[in-house]
Amino acid sequence: MKPFTYSRPASVEEAAKAAAATQGARFIAGGTNLLDLMKLQIETPSHLIDVNHLGLDRIEKTEEGGLRIGALVRNTDLAADKAVRRDYAVLSRALLAGASGQLRNKATTGGNLLQRTRCPYFYDTRMPCNKRQPGSGCGAMKGISRSLAILGTSDACIAQHPSDMAVALRLLDASVETVGADGGRRAIPIADFHTLPGATPHVETALKPGELITAVTLPRPLGGTHVYRKVRDRASYAFALVSVAAIFGGDGKARFAFGGIAAKPWRVAEADAAASRGARAVAEAALAGATPTAQNAFKQQLTAQTLASIYRQKEA
């Protein structure tokens, strides 16, 4: 691990300013992803800015009738929050399907959004990886790709976005509030927050240097029946092969978002539009343009089957 310095700014503005001004600086929240990557020399920040003490750990109602979730709210607390469980159950379920109890106690809302891929070549610094080391090639594409993405990939990178929480946020049309290095605030719709790899897979979000996530806001509750179904290689504590977040309205309408299969939390308008035509129609729309490898082609079938299971249980 590269030696690093550490600071605790007094305000969000100060934190953002310091991050932009300090060479090699990184925010640290729960540290459950960042510290692992530092130990493996995949991330080598020389300065850590601790954002745990900035009062960003509250959940409150917005004027629009939605919810503002502080960036430092722990995954455990968010999943257990009464309003979340009542009005945004899909978020609570997605959170509880992720990681382990211990990790969720530390993991934060902002950190979870920014967690990096689980591509095994990204995790081994001796291997080629365009995301870790731009221009070095992609180890996975012709190697082991079973867990990787089939949607939103590029010639440079086929990594999957591993978050469960972000899939639910995508479904709920959340927006990400930030403070920039210049003290300016903005709200980034979740759809635009994560970027596709294209030719620059090392760029993963719309955040600018130093930009700090302060909160995630949710619009007014949508009602309906909330489902989060995660399919993985063991019963708990594993990343999704496929996950589906869904909200079914009373009127045959539904919306869907997908995890484990795409370069970012995945949502397709055509899939929502196909809701009344059943699971297969939804799957076909959602998987349009898929670019699987031989090893992860099964994710197409598994996505369709997961949707079939959701429909079956809804009807039961």
Partner: peptide, 21 residues
């Protein structure tokens, strides 16, 4: 990985063993 000759999933997040569930 039959090109590079190594075990790719070399940590406990990727080499899965049963958990309580």
């Amino acid at each position: 990985d039959k090109r590079f000759g190594f075990f790719v999933n070399h940590d406990m997040a990727e080499y899965l063993v049963p958990v309580h569930a």
